[in-house]
């Protein structure tokens, strides 16, 4: 009884310390973003004079006006990024799932070969120039240049495969006995049971594509095809340049404008995350056998 009591006290102390630490960490992570939001709604002159504050010293939406009215195609880039993200999520998840579904099958012919084929891509790469040559040969200055190369992502495929092997084979065997084909087994049994991993992969792909910068930088040329991160970078560079040698007679919101661009470009992902959070948390703990 005494031991149980001590354990409870000890547990309580641990919980208190844990909670305090987690709160501190939370503040550490959230505070910078709140500062970004606050700065995006602060006038440029106030930022220059007073620095960054959570609560704007002088409230202003000029930064947002500036970025949406600049010559850079911000709204077009927004749409391009939404489109690329949506298509990538659907296609990448579908393709990886299909590959993983095949790999999970115990009697797949050439299983070792297909596994190795995938593993090699995780270990080696052709390099920047060969990648560039191949992608631009088929998808020069096209949004498909960002989608297609990443369709079969080895890591996602392995994640899905590891999840699928935890689903009992007896389910698929029973369905086969009842006359179900492979497609029916896939769509009626495995897909519904795989919602957590599908949601996880969707989130990974969405975040990855939303934040993608190097691919668009290399493969996209016309402004009409630019994605959001590319435009944000260009905008940031443009504002810094204009502010350094400003002959326009108006204040260039180089600081608040950057913050506004960050807020605008991250808001959709932040809004999406709460809906997929439970699956994400479940997904990162998967891998154990559930027989």
């Amino acid at each position: 009884m005494a031991m149980v009591k001590n354990k409870t006290v000890g547990r309580r102390v641990f919980n208190v310390i844990n909670i305090i630490l987690m709160c501190l960490f939370s503040v550490m992570f959230i505070y910078p973003y709140l500062l970004v939001i606050g700065s995006s709604f602060t006038s440029e002159t106030s930022l220059l004079v007073n620095g960054y504050n959570l609560i704007p010293a002088e409230f202003s939406v000029y930064a947002y006006e500036f970025i949406f009215s600049s010559d850079l195609p911000f709204l077009q880039a927004y749409w391009n990024t939404i489109w690329v993200t949506a298509v990538s999520v659907v296609l990448t998840t579908s393709v990886c799932f299909l590959y993983a579904y095949a790999l999970r099958h115990p009697k797949l012919k050439g299983k070792k070969f297909f596994n190795l084929y995938l593993v090699i891509t995780m270990l080696f790469s052709g390099g920047l120039v060969p990648n560039y040559l191949i992608v631009t040969t088929f998808f020069r200055d096209s949004l498909w240049s960002i989608i297609i190369p990443g369709l079969i992502a080895a890591w996602y495929t392995f994640l899905i495969r590891n999840y699928l092997v935890t689903i009992s084979n007896s389910l698929s065997e029973a369905a086969e006995i009842d006359g179900a084909g492979q497609f029916t087994i896939l769509t009626r049994i495995f897909v519904p049971l795989s919602k957590p991993i599908i949601a996880t992969i969707c989130l990974f792909v969405a975040v990855s594509q939303w934040n993608s910068y190097t691919g668009p930088l290399l493969y996209l040329e016309s402004e009409g095809n630019y994605t959001l991160q590319l435009v944000v970078n260009k905008m940031s560079d443009l504002m810094a340049n204009l502010a350094a040698n400003n002959t326009t007679g108006r204040i260039i919101p180089s600081e608040s404008g950057e913050m506004a661009a960050v807020v605008v470009s991250t808001l959709p992902i932040i809004c999406l995350y709460p809906f997929l959070q439970k699956y994400f948390i479940t997904g990162i703990t998967m891998g154990g056998v559930k027989e």
């Binding site: 391009n80 489109w83 200055d141």
Partner: peptide
């Protein structure tokens, strides 16, 4: 639908 994103300047 995606092909409408193709094409350069």
């Amino acid at each position: 639908f995606g092909f409408c994103a193709c094409g350069g300047g």
